[in-house]
């Protein structure tokens, strides 16, 4: 079903027009990478703050509030640029195991990231207390960082995995 949808999409005038302009793919991918930079740096900085590995002079609530807009704005840009890339080469993505795995992992990473930020925003004083971040939260944060990393790596592997 995805394959026939991909074939239909590739034949649409919009896809045909974008395919003809050879600079569009590298340009949109470049914007995609810049947005990846915003998300990865934000998640990394927040995780390391929770672990107490960096930014200890700053409160957890400060760091969380600081990076939150970067993550959600950048995810919006990633969605938009990602859709454009799919329109241009639908089967390259839609029938690609790396792409499909990556997409299924995005909610796995985004949901706990959102829940954590919402919790910190709701009760900043609690999170800013010394030793407020439990071991379970730390382990969870590292796991979520790992999923974000896997998403980025799988994104790069789209180019190396065979597709229909």
């Amino acid at each position: 079903m995805l394959l026939s949808f991909a074939k239909w999409l590739a034949a649409t005038p919009l896809s045909q027009t974008l395919q003809a302009a050879l600079w569009v793919v590298p340009a949109v991918q470049s914007v995609h990478i810049l947005a990846i930079a915003a998300v990865m740096t934000s998640v990394w900085v927040l995780t390391f703050r929770l672990l107490g590995l960096s930014g200890r002079g700053r409160l957890v609530s400060q760091v969380s509030g600081d990076v939150a807009p970067w993550i959600w704005w950048a995810l919006g840009v990633l969605l938009l640029t990602g859709i454009i890339l799919i329109i241009i080469e639908p089967s390259r993505e839609l029938t690609n195991a790396a792409f499909l795995t990556k997409m299924s992992l995005i909610p796995v990473a985004a949901a706990p990231t959102y829940v954590l930020q919402a919790a910190v925003r709701r009760d900043a004083a609690l999170w800013d207390r010394q030793g407020a971040v439990s071991l379970a939260i730390k382990i969870g944060a590292v796991a979520v960082l790992g999923v974000w990393i896997a998403i980025a790596v799988l994104g790069r592997f789209i180019a190396y995995v065979e597709y229909a």
Binding site: I33, L34, I36, A37, A38, M40, T41, S42, W44, V45, W70, I149, A152, V153, R156
Partner: peptide
């Protein structure tokens, strides 16, 4: 890609 993401993200 992961490394340059952190370089560019932190610099930006």
């Amino acid at each position: 890609v992961l490394a340059l993401a952190l370089v560019v993200g932190s610099i930006a």
